[in-house]
Design a protein around this nucleic acid. Structure first.
Lengths: 128, 128
DNA sequence: CTGTATCCCATCTGATACTG
DNA sequence: CAGTATCAGATGGGATACAG
């Protein structure tokens, strides 16, 4: 039995919307990291990605499948289900993702600080 | 006198629209690489980025400036001009960018092949 | 030279409800 | 369980023209 994915796997502030580094669409990198340790079912992915609607999650998975990064397998058994897993190509993408995430993590404060300063200066500009 | 940037610096097929790895907006990574070897003027950047309209180029530069990745300097001399250059933070981003670009370059064919196969299979699906 | 102003369209993302 | 359908909003990007 594999480990369930934790619901708090991703910080609410972490999604790619604030992260300047993006791999494909908004959730692609997070999905790939969810698949790092083996195949996952759709419902499993929904746990850590609870803020993603099923429609968007499907979209994103299809896009990853299209790029050959993820393989989708349907099991038409008594309890039918679907599993997603990384292809070798998808797995190879973990390296640049990890490097990028490490950069972001390391410079997160610097980044937020810069934005704050810039926005404040801009506001003052527009006011005065 | 610094080297002018070549007009064919970027392949038409290369822009981030096809590249699944993105750093910020569509042109951010390309801009950062344009600034790798020193400051550049707006008009200089327009040469290799000829497919980017001035409005969008400005937008993207502002966004990079906001994130503290690029510094903008105005020279109000007889011939006024503006120079953009990487901050240390921006320079540090070169590493993840280079890693990501290396990945994309290495797996480009694989990626395009996967898309083609997927699209073809999808078309057949919808036809038959 | 270094941008801005408008207008517009495409894409992405999301909310909500529904289905084989 | 694993999605799809529909509608809507936000955002990004681009064309074109103009300005300090």
């Amino acid at each position: 039995m594999r480990e369930p994915l934790p619901a708090d796997m991703f910080d609410e502030l972490c999604p790619s919307s604030l992260n300047p580094i993006r791999f494909g669409d908004k959730w692609a990198a997070l999905i790939i990291r969810c698949l790092e340790h083996g195949p996952r079912r759709f419902s499993e992915l929904r746990v850590p990605l609870s803020r993603v609607t099923p429609k968007v999650l499907t979209q994103s998975l299809r896009s990853l499948e299209r790029d050959g990064l993820v393989r989708r397998t349907v099991y038409a058994e008594a309890t039918p289900h679907v599993e997603y897993e990384l292809t070798p190509l998808g797995r190879s993408m973990l390296q640049p993702i990890v490097v990028a995430c490490a950069w972001t993590e390391k410079h997160w404060d610097e980044l937020l600080g810069a934005r704050e300063s810039y926005d404040q200066a801009t506001r003052l500009d527009h006011a005065g």
